[in-house]
Structure formats: structure tokens, C-alpha cells
Computed example of a mutant assay.
Amino acid sequence: MTDKPRHLLTLDSLPRATLEALLERAQAFAAGEQARDALDGVAVCTLFFEPSTRTRLSFQLAGQRLGAHVLGFDASTSSTTKGETDLDTFRTIEAMGVRGFVIRHKGDGAVTALAAAAGPGVSVLNAGEGRSAHPTQGLLDMLTLRQAKGTDFSQLKVLIVGDVLHSRVARSDLHALRTLGAGEIRVCGPAALLPDDGTLRGCTVVDDFDAALAGVDAVMMLRIQRERMEDGLIASLDDYHRHYGLTATRLRRAAPDAVVLHPGPMNRGVEITDEVADGPQSLVLRQVANGVAVRMAALDLLLGC
């Protein structure tokens, strides 16, 4: 690939050719292609300052499948609890000869700042930064959509539902959908949970969830973050479910072959019912499986020969 990037921090402004090349490589891995020696001898650290299940484990498995030496980092059991700064932690691990960092952090700009401090030959992959970006989640969502709907997104109607304001997943999905030329992007959620900073440019915002579902090809549900109740941004979980919960009855308003995605973790009975989450139109577990393939492709791009 020409113009190989050093870091992968966001999908915003990522060239379409690079994005599509990543998806093609990920599809090859998903189909069973082996690359055990691609990162043979390369040390990769999953540097997570926030809890994670899917992202952390899939990155670790991806690195192992590429032959990397994978080091796990848990902030709760590290010297950060003794006052060590994030930058000192990063530089300490870098000094051990680690070439690749997979970093998750709650602070917007924190991963980007660590990437700027990286020494020569060291690459950083953003595994979730504040509310601003989660590029590999966006990539795995696009791979899942491509598998279900084909590579031409120009006629695709996609609906994103929920707390877009605080969602790094939604932002990365929106970046990718625009780059891939999605035909129509609809957004639905409580007004207090929709951003007004340009994030939704080019999107059709629909207040009524039932109306928003009409004829869509894909429904991308977002986790309702329960702390938003404490902030007074939603009245109650029951009220949220009544207005924005995806039920089997509601899903019938979408296209007959519509698919349902959710980045997890799911709040069952709040933003999605068991019947939908476990139903035939749900691609939630395929997203999880695709996460390993996408993260293999991303690590291979940044750190492979």
C-alpha cells in the first residue's frame, strides 16, 4: 500500500483507498488467510487506561495470530496508581523495545498526544479515545455491513440510534460511512444526546424512531450510557426504551432484509430487546468475530513489512 500511515488514530479524512484496502485485508483474514509470521518478533502493548472486553481481547488475539509478542497493560494494577503520568508510562514501555501501542483512554486527545510523543519506528493504534474516535470499531462495522450488503454503499440506507453525543463509535461509523459513499445516513435519538458541533453533517435527523426505521437497510444501535441518567439527559431507562428501544415489532418497519448492529456491551431491555439481539437479523456476534480480522489488518498495516 502506498503512503502507509505511521499511526491509526481516526477514520476522519482517511483516504478511501486506504480504508478499502484495510477492509479487503480484513476480509481475507476473516476468510481464513494466515499471517503467522507477519509480525514475528515485534512487541505490541495493549495500553488500556479504561476497561474493555471486546476491543482488548480481540487486539491481543489479533497480535498473537500475526506472531507478535503481545504485552497486556491494566492501569488499575500499574504504576499509574502510584502517580506515574500517562506519558511516563508510555515512555517506560517504549524503552523496553515495544514498537506497537494499542491505546484506549477516556480523555479526548490523550491517545493523539501519546502518538505525537512516540519515538522513531513506533506506531500507535487508537483503541478508543474519549468521545472522539474508535477507528477499528468503525472498520469492523463497515466490514460487517459489506459482508451483509455488498461493497457498494451508494444505495444503502443506514440508521444510527441513541447517544451519539458521547459515542466515539458513532463518530467513527459516520466518518467511514461518508468516505464509503453511503446513500443515506439517518440519525435518531433524544435531542439532549445529539451533538450540534457538525458531527451530523450530511445526516438526516429524525425525531421519531418508528419513522426513522422506515425502509432502512441497517440499524446501528448505540449503548445508552447509564451515567446520562445522573446527568439528567434522559428521564429514565424505561422512558428511553419506550421511545428508542429496538423491538421485533419496530424492526418490521425497516427493509425486510435489514440487519442490526450493536458495538456492545448491550443493555438488554433498554436499547435492544433479547428477541432482536439474538434474532436472525442481528449481526452482533459477527461484529465481534470481525473485530479480530480488522485488528489483524490494522496491526499488519502499521507494523508489517
Score class of each variant (00 low, 15 high):
1 M>T: 11
1 M>H: 14
1 M>G: 14
2 T>P: 13
4 K>E: 01
8 L>W: 09
8 L>H: 09
10 T>H: 09
12 D>Q: 14
12 D>Y: 12
12 D>F: 09
13 S>I: 00
14 L>W: 07
16 R>E: 11
17 A>R: 14
18 T>W: 00
19 L>C: 11
21 A>T: 12
21 A>H: 11
22 L>I: 07
23 L>C: 07
26 A>Y: 04
26 A>N: 03
28 A>Y: 00
29 F>R: 02
44 V>W: 04
47 L>H: 07
49 F>G: 05
50 E>G: 10
58 S>V: 03
59 F>I: 07
60 Q>G: 15
64 Q>K: 14
64 Q>W: 04
65 R>L: 08
65 R>K: 14
68 A>G: 05
80 T>V: 14
80 T>K: 01
82 K>R: 12
86 D>G: 00
90 F>K: 12
90 F>A: 09
91 R>C: 04
94 E>T: 10
96 M>L: 15
97 G>Q: 06
98 V>M: 11
98 V>S: 10
101 F>V: 05
102 V>A: 05
106 K>Q: 06
109 G>K: 12
109 G>R: 10
110 A>N: 12
111 V>H: 14
117 A>G: 02
117 A>R: 12
126 N>T: 06
130 G>C: 08
131 R>M: 04
132 S>H: 13
132 S>E: 06
133 A>W: 09
133 A>E: 13
135 P>D: 03
142 M>I: 00
143 L>E: 06
144 T>N: 02
149 K>F: 00
152 D>W: 07
155 Q>G: 11
155 Q>A: 12
155 Q>C: 05
161 V>W: 01
163 D>F: 08
164 V>H: 07
166 H>Q: 08
168 R>Y: 03
169 V>C: 10
176 A>R: 11
178 R>C: 04
178 R>I: 04
178 R>K: 13
179 T>E: 13
179 T>H: 08
183 G>Q: 02
185 I>C: 05
190 P>R: 08
192 A>Y: 07
197 D>R: 13
198 G>W: 10
202 G>L: 03
210 D>C: 10
210 D>M: 09
211 A>W: 01
211 A>H: 11
212 A>K: 10
212 A>P: 07
213 L>K: 11
215 G>P: 05
219 V>S: 03
220 M>Y: 14
231 D>M: 14
233 L>P: 07
234 I>D: 13
235 A>P: 05
236 S>D: 15
236 S>L: 11
239 D>A: 15
239 D>G: 15
242 R>S: 15
243 H>V: 04
251 L>R: 10
251 L>Y: 04
253 R>M: 02
255 A>I: 06
255 A>V: 09
263 P>M: 09
267 N>I: 07
269 G>V: 08
280 P>V: 01
281 Q>F: 00
282 S>P: 09
291 G>C: 02
292 V>H: 04
292 V>N: 02
296 M>A: 00
298 A>W: 04
301 L>G: 01
303 L>T: 06
